[in-house]
Amino acid sequence: MTIVVIILTLAGLIFFFATTVGLLRFPDFYSRMHAAGKGDTLSSLLMLLPLALYNFHEFNIANLLVAMKILLIGVFIFMASPTATHAIIDAGYEAGIKPWTKKPEEES
């Protein structure tokens, strides 16, 4: 059990790190949001799942309740975070932010 918890937490940390690097290093608004939206959601779940598991060193109803609440937080993050990312990207698209391309943009 503890090993699973450690592995999941480490995976979550790695994904969080990748998210941060992506957020800082990607070239334009859309790709940065892509890193933030995907990485954040997955790594949050990867951190919450071991938290829920860690509650079960002794199994009883109270621990089950806590674990269920933590999992519910995960469900809501899974719904809300991609939608928020979508909303921000949509606003950026409507504001007319040009996506980054490999060729330098020609002035027109």
């Binding site: 809501f76 719904m79 809300a80 939608t83 979508h86 909303a87 949509d90």
Partner: peptide, 12 residues
């Protein structure tokens, strides 16, 4: 009207 945002907001 953004369908995704509206749907998720309605569910949440």
């Amino acid at each position: 009207p953004d369908t995704i945002i509206r749907f998720v907001a309605r569910q949440l």
